[in-house]
Computed example of a mutant assay.
Amino acid sequence: MKRFLTFIFFVSLGALHAQEWQDSYASALDRANTADKPIVLVFSGSDWCAPCIRLKKSILDTEEFKTYASKNYVLYNADFPRKKQNQLPEEKSGVNKMLAEKYNPKGYFPLVVVLDKNGSVLGETGFNPRLTPEKYISLLNKFIK
């Protein structure tokens, strides 16, 4: 029982330090204003876009990015899945479409847009397989400075 409780404690502790993707764009804006942090808005096709999947695996899901992002960014994923079983709720899908019209009118995937706390574009990039998580963070930070 003691081992189980210790395991639960460390899993919970890890969850507290992990990056936190916001459930809605409204909550991302609110959090960005409260914490005075930029928003990293990721346009992805999670179940069909190979470069999107590679960006997630090689950058966004790394411990280095997660740790840095949790302290320095507010994260929101505007996902556009195609498979029926992965479809988003209608409201979230509508918000993502509105965000795409405003920030990704050409429909590039993946597209990573860095916004200030008011939703103004600071810069944008995509996926470059040659970049390490450290270099990707550096690229995002160049837009902020």
Rank of each mutant, 00 (worst) to 15 (best):
G123A: 10
Y76R: 10
N118C: 04
Q19D: 14
F7P: 00
Y68S: 04
H17G: 15
P105A: 12
W21Q: 05
H17E: 08
G123R: 12
P105F: 05
V121R: 14
G94I: 00
Y25A: 02
E64A: 15
E63R: 15
S93P: 03
A78F: 04
V95F: 06
Q19E: 13
G126E: 03
C49H: 06
Y136S: 03
I137P: 00
K92V: 11
V74D: 04
P133N: 02
L111D: 05
F109H: 06
L16G: 07
G107R: 07
G45W: 04
D36C: 04
Q19R: 11
F109Y: 15
S44A: 15
F65M: 05
E63F: 11
N96H: 05
V114G: 06
E90F: 11
A15R: 04
K56S: 15
N118W: 05
R3I: 10
R82I: 08
T34M: 10
P129I: 11
K66Y: 07
K102W: 00
V112S: 02
L131D: 03
T132Y: 03
V113W: 03
F9N: 03
L16W: 10
Y76P: 02
R3P: 01
L115M: 07
E64T: 15
L13Q: 01
T34E: 14
S93R: 12
L55I: 02
V42E: 05
A26G: 11
A50D: 09
Y108M: 10
N104V: 10
M98T: 10
L55F: 00
E64Y: 06
F143P: 01
L5I: 08
F4L: 13
Q85P: 01
V42T: 11
D23E: 13
F43H: 03
L88T: 14
E20L: 13
T34V: 14
V112K: 01
Y103A: 08
L140F: 02
K106G: 05
D23H: 06
E63I: 12
T62I: 12
K71D: 14
R130Q: 13
D23W: 01
S44G: 11
F143E: 09
E64D: 10
R82N: 09
A50N: 08
G45M: 03
S93Y: 13
F127K: 00
C49Y: 03
E124P: 06
L75C: 09
K2Y: 11
K57I: 11
K84F: 05
Q22P: 00
D61G: 09
K71P: 03
G107Y: 09
I39V: 14
S24F: 07
L99N: 01
K57M: 12
Y103V: 08
L115S: 05
F65N: 01
W21H: 06
S44C: 02
P105K: 04
S46T: 06
N128A: 04
L131I: 00
P89V: 15
Y108G: 12
Y136N: 00
L140Y: 00
Y25W: 08
